[in-house]
């Protein structure tokens, strides 16, 4: 099924329609951070903690597709192989297949499948692309951002993106020097991001900063507990509903984009007007901006006339 989604098989679209009503029960955790900070290793340790609580857990690990060959090495899984034969753990690697932000619509579709299959927690691991890839927050209920000591000064922690999306900040490899300094920077950053209104503070989740050493499991239990308590907190304060609404909206928008693009490209293939306009752009008779406007307007008008 996930395979059909990846290959954009039309039958996947139909099957998802049937599965969708059964989804919506899982707690989705996004894990993001630069390459090499230990995302996969930490998830491996997290699986162990969640399994101790007998939670059924699925992992979607996204790795980059080569823009040159279109191939990919999916290497996240190899750090989680000790769970390969546990029936209540499902691990699936996906290649980003050229989507920016490291998260394709296919990831969201796959999450729906796993959710409908009854996995209670779904962890999505993003491509370790670094700054600006916090799209995972548009799919996940809770987002964990991993950092390691020694990767830059305090300014790195206050740049846009990372500031807005993290619910849990993780300082991994915290046995390395300067770990406390990073914790300090992150904590200070979080304390500044709140609106300075005390009545909001009661119903808003304050992002946590945790220290872990994924390799030996130090701090991982606390991390698992923090994710669970974030989930509880959201449930109690009706934040979860808000989040779900947001997630559904962004999924709907991305579906619209995909479907519209498909229609437009179909139009491009079958209509002479597209070629005509393209020629005009290329001979500089028309600017591409008015041309795009014209083509889109024509498609929309066509539709409403029908």
């Amino acid at each position: 099924m996930i395979r059909l989604i990846e290959d954009s098989d039309p039958s996947a679209f139909e099957m998802l329609k049937l599965l969708y009503p059964h989804s919506g029960n899982a707690f989705i955790i996004g894990i993001t951070g630069p390459p090499g900070v230990g995302k996969s290793t930490l998830i491996d340790a997290l699986i162990l903690e969640f399994r101790k609580l007998d939670i059924k857990i699925a992992v979607i690990a996204v790795d980059p597709t080569s823009p040159i060959s279109g191939g990919a090495i999916l290497g996240d899984r190899l750090r989680m192989q000790r769970h390969a034969t546990d029936e209540k753990v499902f691990i699936r690697s996906m290649a980003s297949r050229g989507q920016k932000g490291g998260l394709s619509r296919a990831t969201k579709d796959a999450a729906i499948v796993l959710d409908a299959m009854g996995y209670e927690i779904i962890i999505i691991e993003t491509v370790g692309a670094g700054q600006g890839e916090f799209e995972v927050a548009t799919i996940a209920h809770s987002t964990g951002i991993i950092n390691i000591p020694g990767t830059g000064d305090g300014i790195q922690t206050v740049k846009a993106g990372i500031l807005e999306t993290g619910d849990v900040f993780i300082v991994n490899k915290s046995d390395k020097p300067d770990a406390d300094e990073l914790v300090h920077h992150l904590t200070r950053m979080i304390s500044m991001r709140k609106p300075f209104k005390t009545n909001l503070a009661k119903t808003n989740w304050t992002a946590r900063v945790l220290k872990t050493i994924a390799r030996d499991g130090t701090g991982v239990k606390e991390l698992a507990d923090t994710f669970l308590s974030h989930f509880d907190f959201m449930k109690k304060n009706s934040l979860l509903d808000q989040k779900r609404k947001k997630i559904e909206k962004s999924y709907f928008t991305s579906l619209l984009k995909d479907l519209i693009l498909k229609k437009v490209l179909l139009f491009a293939e079958t209509s002479g007007e597209y070629m005509e306009v393209l020629n005009k752009i290329q001979s500089r008779e028309m600017d591409p901006l008015s041309a795009a406007e014209l083509v889109v307007n024509n498609i929309c008008v066509l539709k409403s006339n029908n």
Binding site: T65, S66, I68, S69, G70, G71, A72, I73, L74, G75, R77, L78, R79, Q81, A84, T85, I91, S93, A95
Partner: peptide
């Protein structure tokens, strides 16, 4: 990978059960 395939590497010391499940 360079031939355009998606490759999953299992890591060392895999049991046949692990390979089949993967």
């Amino acid at each position: 990978r360079d031939a355009g395939m998606e490759v999953i590497y299992s890591g060392l010391h895999q049991t046949l059960e692990q390979i089949t499940q993967t």
